[in-house]
Design a protein around this nucleic acid. Sequence first.
DNA 1: ACTAGTTGCTACAGGAATGTAGCAACTATG
DNA 2: CATAGTTGCTACATTCCTGTAGCAACTAGT
Lengths: 207, 207
Amino acid sequence: MRDHDTEQTPGPGRARRADAERTVRAILAAAERVLSQEPGATMERIAAEAGVARTTVHRRFASREDLVSSLTVLAAQQLEAAVLAGRPDSAPPLVALHEVTAHVLRIKRTWRFAMGVRSDHPEVVRVHTDTRARCVTLFRRARDAGAVRPDVDPDWASRVYYGLIHAAAEDLAEEPAPAELDAAAARVVDTLLTGLGAGDRTTHRAD
Amino acid sequence: MRDHDTEQTPGPGRARRADAERTVRAILAAAERVLSQEPGATMERIAAEAGVARTTVHRRFASREDLVSSLTVLAAQQLEAAVLAGRPDSAPPLVALHEVTAHVLRIKRTWRFAMGVRSDHPEVVRVHTDTRARCVTLFRRARDAGAVRPDVDPDWASRVYYGLIHAAAEDLAEEPAPAELDAAAARVVDTLLTGLGAGDRTTHRAD
DNA sequence: ACTAGTTGCTACAGGAATGTAGCAACTATG
DNA sequence: CATAGTTGCTACATTCCTGTAGCAACTAGT
């Protein structure tokens, strides 16, 4: 089990001291900032951004791979929390869609780099699988509620949804205000459901 | 002007020999294949994929940066050709939209890595600027033709369009048949214009 | 066939990044 | 206050990658 631990802990049963915990957080946050702008940045650069010595980074993360891995796990956990906060399984479909979107947009913006890395860490895989499933379920509920066309492929719907979120996250500020998040989420949901076409929905199907 | 030349040429006025030309193409194609799966891959790895010696790669491309730069330029040129092949400025808006989408999907799939790199090479910047402009113009024409809602922000429309193309390109085979491309393009355009929502376009706006 | 371009191979130099070790100074925690 | 964890610093080993050079064998273009 210890194989899956990415961060280094002092002793077998020992807990980390509070300041060390803070250091770890600082390093992860710094790594996200630096790597999102320069994916190949060195440990030196990350350490500097975090305000610690390079050796300290190596004390907490055995290798560069470990650091990135921890980063993806952290982002995945944040993502899961954001999705769950939107109550995708219990709230009315369209309400849930809006809430989930707003929450995910914030996380996606904050952990831009980490969310873009394909990780095979079991925890990350689990979260992505679960999230995908929740997404499909949500669209199914929306369909049953008559909000989504019956013939829409859930897989395609998910892809489109992810794509729209990605697009919307692009032009968000680094720390968007709640109002901005709401507006962006509304735009995403609106585009997702009605598209950009004019009123007549059959116009372009004439051919 | 020689500063902007990425590939190395033998003499001032001399043309490259045919076999050398083939080698350059092979290296670029190999680089795309390798880097799309492993962005940090070494020159050694790329050379092996291309079936040439590592030193030969360095003969044709002064540095790793040069290689990637050439790759982005090549991809940009392919993209421009693909867009123009769709006659975005002259064909009927919805026809053009469909044609451009199909052509771009193929290129996007083939040059997955190169299209994802942010390059500041003047040629790449030019193509992206022009393409963006053509995209906006196309949407404006579509709007004037009554195919797109009048209140849609062209910038957002472009982002959504790019996002959908990206999403659609994800689940395309490596070498998709024309029929697959057409189907994928149709799905993109349909989703773009009508979204995934049910018939009643005002349902989700009730709140 | 002749010429000049092209390539594989080997060898080498240099740099950059990674990862480790030890020690002194500091600090959270009880 | 005493203990043990934490960190900065310096130093070092090592590995990996990049980029260059020279030479012999091969080959396209004429």
